[in-house]
């Protein structure tokens, strides 16, 4: 399994990388949505993206919309990992095509649980 971690904070990317590496994921990273899209157009297409919402250049919501607009990427699972925690934001992200949503702050178990709900790690 390959995970792309998209967050403008290096520290947060490092936390998420350690969690998914422990689950034997290979990882790639991007510091905003546009950088992630560039990587995907260049052929680095992950099984799952862990996407922050608030980022410079391109935010996570726009990134999700862009990914969902490309039928070639329909198998990519999208999981928001963000401090945005209003109900309406979660509804918006799901409507735009996010499969799961984790609210920051989170414990490592929260990420593992959600990945296992998505069938990406054995329960």
């Amino acid at each position: 399994m390959r995970a792309m971690i998209i967050d403008d904070s290096r520290a947060m990317r490092s936390i998420l990388r350690r969690i998914v590496t422990d689950l034997d994921f290979e990882t790639s990273e991007a510091e905003h949505g546009q950088a992630a899209l560039d990587q995907m157009y260049a052929g680095v297409v992950p099984d799952v993206c862990l996407v922050d919402w608030n980022m410079p250049v391109m935010d996570g919501y726009t990134f999700i919309t862009e990914v969902r607009a490309n039928p070639e990427w329909r198998d990519v699972t999208l999981m928001m990992v963000t401090t945005e925690s209003e109900q309406r934001q979660i509804v918006r992200a799901l409507a735009a095509g996010a499969h799961e949503y984790v609210i920051k702050p989170f414990t490592p178990d929260a990420i593992v649980d959600k990945l296992s709900l998505l069938g990406l790690v054995p329960a």
Partner: peptide, 9 residues
């Protein structure tokens, strides 16, 4: 913390 764990969004 509780709703973040194991509950589908």
């Amino acid at each position: 913390v509780e709703v973040n764990r194991g509950l589908p969004a």
